[in-house]
Amino acid sequence: MRLELLERRGDPASPVHQAPALGKLLLTLLFIGVVVSSPSRNPILPAAALLTITLVAAVARISPGHLIRKLVSVEPFVVSVALLSLLQPGGVAIFLSMVIKSSLSVLAMILLVSTTRFGDLLRALRRLRLPGIMVMTLALMHRYIAVLGDETERMRRARASRTLVRGRRRAWSDLAAVAARLFIRSSERAERIYHAMCARGWRT
């Protein structure tokens, strides 16, 4: 499975890639804090933030296309949360402010993930004293996205190889069947992973 979402991009020898993960994580959190808490009606700060992101991306040799693609994939969640603000007086300005601030924050996170190994990020989170169970959950999620992706693809192919009639309704019912089976398999796998963790001394 292609794991573009989880892998570093750009030039691995760039200063941004080489910088310590903990420092990058702290700077990203500071950046997000500043962006989120900045006055909504001041256009200079968002512009400066975007310029910073563009400069860092250029130094790291990360293409704007990569950043935009990743941003677009997250944008539906950002917009759907921001839509609620349209229901209040002066909602359009709040909506725009929310979308801009959220998008800048997401861009900063994409930049962090694209220039830092996931393992290094988890170690940085541990050093920041994030609860171990949260770090472990993130680690497991990162590890098993690829495994579940492969499993989904195998099931999809197996179904497709015996699908003789095409049709939208049929495709949806097939998708539902694959999702249900994947859920059961994931639950069984979770139990086996837990056994494997216990076998090496987890919580004894």
Binding site: R117, F118, G119, L122, A139, L140, H142, R143, Y144, V147, R189, R192, I193, H195, A196, M197
Partner: peptide, 8 residues
């Protein structure tokens, strides 16, 4: 894949 549960 059950036993290799860490990122690296």
């Amino acid at each position: 894949d059950d036993q290799l549960f860490c990122p690296t």
